[in-house]
């Protein structure tokens, strides 16, 4: 029977995964018997071993890898997150489900938004026809398109004007629905520089809180912009303002460029 001191000699190699089976079994039995000192030493050694990762030279994976990942992640986010964010049917007035496209006529950006939503719905239907198995997901995409429309149309959505700074005099409009999320639409939006995106920031009310990074978008070729944030970082009442800056593609964790548009939430 070995004592703790002898086990201590095995702990670094154990964390490294270098123990031969016999030593490993002995140490694991000792740990399983509940030795808090050795358990703590193992934790420390595991952390130490993790530091060895830094001795590998950093390398940049291909953009293709990131592209594949982001594609997968976006698709999964649509099929996984949204249903949870979706309020129960009863919470949505039924009139909103009916004739969404027709109601959009009243929207400032109606023509474009309507066309876009119609296209999305048509594409979703086509996909549903070819891919029977994906039906559920397609229906969720449809629900997404409808949800954007509902945010724009629901009279309870709070309208927030995002005023442009000197270089960008056009005003964007955000609509914040307490349950469905935030939609931001804009027209004649200047194109960000190459490899840059427009990134949305939510500024919490809390004193000293940092701007929370959110969705990124590039306007289309005609300068139309529509962006949907299903889960803003804070509730409407806890958010002071929404702002938009131009950031390098991929977005930033902290605004690195001047604010282009901003508006007070309350």
């Amino acid at each position: 029977m070995k004592n703790c001191d002898q086990f201590r000699e095995l702990i670094e190699a154990y964390a490294l995964g270098a123990l031969d089976p016999e030593d490993r079994a002995a140490l694991e039995a000792h740990l399983a018997a509940g030795c808090p000192d050795c358990a703590k030493a193992v934790e420390e050694a595991r952390w130490l071993v993790c530091q060895l990762a830094y001795t590998a030279p950093e390398a940049t994976p291909s953009d293709m890898l990131k592209g594949r990942l982001m594609q997968t992640v976006r698709a999964e986010a649509q099929s996984e997150r949204k249903p949870r964010m979706l309020p129960t049917k009863n919470a949505i007035p039924s009139w909103l489900w009916v004739g969404v496209a027709a109601l959009l006529v009243f929207s400032v950006y109606s023509a474009w938004t309507t066309r876009r939503l119609q296209n999305e719905i048509r594409e979703a239907n086509e996909r549903a026809a070819t891919l029977g198995i994906e039906h559920g997901r397609v229906l969720e995409q449809l629900a997404d398109a409808k949800r954007e429309a509902m945010i724009m149309m629901d009279p309870t959505s709070r309208k927030i004007a995002l005023w442009g700074e000197h270089a960008h005099p056009e005003t964007l409009e955000a609509k914040w629905h307490s349950q469905l999320g935030v939609c931001i639409v804009g027209d004649k939006v200047p194109m960000p520089s190459a490899n840059h995106v427009l990134q949305v920031w939510f500024i919490p009310k809390k004193e000293g809180a940092k701007p929370m990074p959110s969705a990124m978008v590039r306007p289309d070729a005609n300068g139309k912009l529509m962006l949907y944030v299903s889960a803003p970082p804070e509730s409407m009442d806890d958010t002071k303002a929404i702002a938009i800056t131009e950031e390098p593609a991929g977005g930033s964790g902290w605004p690195t460029m001047p604010i282009l548009w901003s508006g007070k939430v309350t």
């Binding site: 982001m70 992640v73 976006r74 999964e76 986010a77 996984e80 997150r81 990074p213 959110s214 969705a215 990124m216 889960a231 991929g250 977005g251 964790g253």
Partner: peptide, 10 residues
């Protein structure tokens, strides 16, 4: 954990 795509990207 809330399936925030931009958090993943960062």
């Amino acid at each position: 954990m809330q399936k925030d795509v931009s958090a993943f990207e960062q």
